[in-house]
Design a protein around this nucleic acid. Structure first.
Length: 546
RNA sequence: GGCCUGUUGGUCAAGUGGUCAAGACGCCACCCUCUCAAGGUGGAAUCACGAGUUCAACUCUCGUACAGGCUACCA
């Protein structure tokens, strides 16, 4: 029996590899264009690090007029969950990650499909057969138990672990011996027949990490598993070749698989793509850095940001500053430009892991929210509240115009307020503006705590000096007059120079009014608050105090 | 254990042989100010360690330490 027949016996396929080579033509793109992809397992869970990698891949394709596609890597059936794919697609779409081709909620889009690995079984087998025919792959009949024994022995003797050299027992099985085992009903998988030498190094250049030297792969790695599906390594080589991926962008946990992958491309006669290995986003745990973990760290899940009400855009801006730290400076120097004009550069990406920096995220988020219009802040807060605080949502809907005015306090101006970092904290900042919520546990009186004095101040000021139609300057002048009439300093400077001459300052005076109306000592502009509250609410609140 | 990668202030980082070692976040102080949030000004704080190469080393080489990753019929 020749190798061709042998291969046919081992793997049944509808087509041979040449058929598939012809099926997928070269892409008609210019030299600079990058073809990138995002290739998750359908677990339904999107990790912050995955979003980060997806973003970089998409951005690189877009800025080079290339193609960005979605491929689903479901060769490990245990990891797949129902609806996992559509959940991933919608989650990513919420963060502005969209694909030019690949899997969509309505089926595949594009000429290089199918884009789901479990539907490509025949393709992988066709290429595995090519390797078998060329004596670059062979069937392995070793049982999981015997492999385990080997591993234990290797550990005990401090040898390198794996299926190589002496341990690669099925490697030199003759075709006849193999056929006999098959006839006996022995199960087999397909392994690569590696000619690599672990003591030889080969040079490799990663787009992000730069030059490095790695040992050649001498392991006869599995390429087709017993369930007939390929391993990640083999699927990666076949898919990224057939789909004409130019740049493989992925997490750097893959770096040590590079010798295997390059070898696979070469054995298959494929052109090796460029690789860009991204450093992980890490978190500090007991004084050491570690990768953001799905189990331990809530901030690893994209849903975390949604629940807090951190705008998706802010998360993306944060990720982009992590990717290229000069992005921040570019933004501040190009305020008139759209962020999409920024050119991301592999060479500027961090090579070590970056710690997740919540303070930085908040800073970026506050700045971003401060640029929004009041109506936009209203919409986004309402959207958040609908999901996570229904009572608040009802209030916002009931008092829509009033609420927008609240959000507009010190907003649409050159130096807007920057006090909202996430929509989940909005209610804590403005609750006192709504009568339904205004049930203070305590009043934050500051320097003036004597209730008679407080009543006196409120009475004199509100009845004799306050007029709701005053403009801001008049309003403040009148407040000063009221303060002076009761023995308080109208100017801070005067008070600081001669504190003994006064009962207090205009600050102390205005604080009484502020706390009476809001119960809080720290609020945005008091003039705006009083105008928005209006007379009825104000007098009701005065009565609550007196 | 083996292999790979990395290490500049608290965090993110620029910097590739000669710099007073950028900038951002955070922190502190002051200014502005009716309180906050901002804004402005200033400040503290960094080249992991040890050798070597060199007139000169954060930058090049080697070693050490520490950290991370990989070492599956998982991806």
């Amino acid at each position: 029996m020749d190798r061709k027949e042998f291969a046919d016996k081992l793997l049944k396929t509808k087509h041979d590899f040449e058929y598939y080579e012809k099926l997928y033509p070269k892409r008609d793109l210019d030299d600079k264009a990058m073809v990138t992809r995002y290739a998750p397992s359908p677990t339904g869970f999107v990790h912050l690090g995955a979003l980060y990698a997806a973003f970089i891949s998409m951005k690189m394709a877009k800025q080079s007029n290339g193609i960005f596609f979605l491929r689903i890597e479901d060769t490990d059936q245990k990891r797949s969950i129902e609806d996992g794919v559509s959940k991933i697609i919608t989650d990513l779409a919420n963060f502005g990650i969209t694909f030019d081709e690949g899997v969509t909620v309505d089926g595949d889009k594009g000429e290089y499909g199918p884009y789901t690995q479990s539907e490509r079984e025949d393709i992988y087998k066709a290429f595995a057969k090519k390797l078998i025919i060329e004596d670059k792959a062979y069937p392995c009949f070793c049982s999981p138990e015997s492999l385990k024994e080997d591993r234990e022995r290797q550990e005990k003797h401090k040898e390198r672990i794996g299926y190589y050299g002496y341990y690669a027992r099925c490697r030199n099985l003759s075709i006849d011996d193999a056929l006999k085992k098959i006839e006996n009903g022995e199960k087999y998988i397909i392994r690569l027949k590696s000619k690599g030498n672990f003591n030889h190094r080969f040079k490799f250049k990663d787009e992000i990490k730069g030059k490095m030297e790695l040992p050649e792969n001498d392991q006869d790695i599995v390429i087709i598993k017993s369930d007939g599906l390929p391993t990640y390594h083999f699927a990666h080589a076949v898919d990224d070749h057939l789909m004409r991926t130019t740049h493989v962008i992925r997490g750097d946990e893959w770096l040590s698989s590079i010798p295997v992958h390059v070898q696979l491309f070469e054995y298959l006669g494929f052109k090796v793509p460029k690789y860009a290995h991204i450093s992980p986003i890490t978190i500090e745990d007991n004084g050491t850095k570690r990768k953001l973990s799905k189990r331990k760290d809530p901030e690893a899940a994209i849903s975390y940001y949604h629940e807090k009400g951190i705008p998706n855009k802010a998360v993306m801006l944060y990720l982009e500053t992590v990717a290229n730290s000069n992005f921040e400076m570019w933004m501040s120097q190009n305020k008139d430009k759209d962020v999409s004009e920024f050119v991301l550069d592999f060479k500027k990406m961090p090579v070590g892991g970056s710690l997740f920096d919540y303070d930085k995220l908040m800073n970026i988020s506050k700045n971003y929210i401060s640029t929004l219009k009041a109506s936009e802040v209203y919409d986004m807060t309402l959207n958040w509240a609908k999901m996570y605080d229904n009572d608040f949502a009802l209030l916002l809907k009931k008092y829509k115009d009033y609420s927008i005015k609240i959000f507009n306090i010190e907003r649409e101006q050159k130096k807007p307020r920057k006090d909202i970092g996430y929509f989940g904290e909005v209610k804590d900042q403005i609750w006192y503006m709504y009568d339904e919520l205004f049930k203070p546990d305590k009043y934050e009186w500051q320097r003036i705590t004597d209730m008679d004095e407080i009543k006196h101040i409120l009475d004199v000021y509100l009845n004799k000096y306050y007029n709701i139609s005053d403009d801001k300057d008049t309003w403040f002048n009148n407040m000063k007059k009221a303060a002076i009439s009761l023995g308080y300093a109208g100017e801070m400077r005067e008070y600081k120079e001669n504190p003994d001459n006064y009962k207090g300052s205009i600050a102390d005076f205005s604080t009484v009014v502020r706390v009476c109306l809001t119960s809080k000592s720290n609020t945005p502009d008091l003039y705006e608050i009083m105008r928005l509250l209006g007379k009825d609410k104000m007098f009701k609140r005065v009565e609550m105090v007196i």
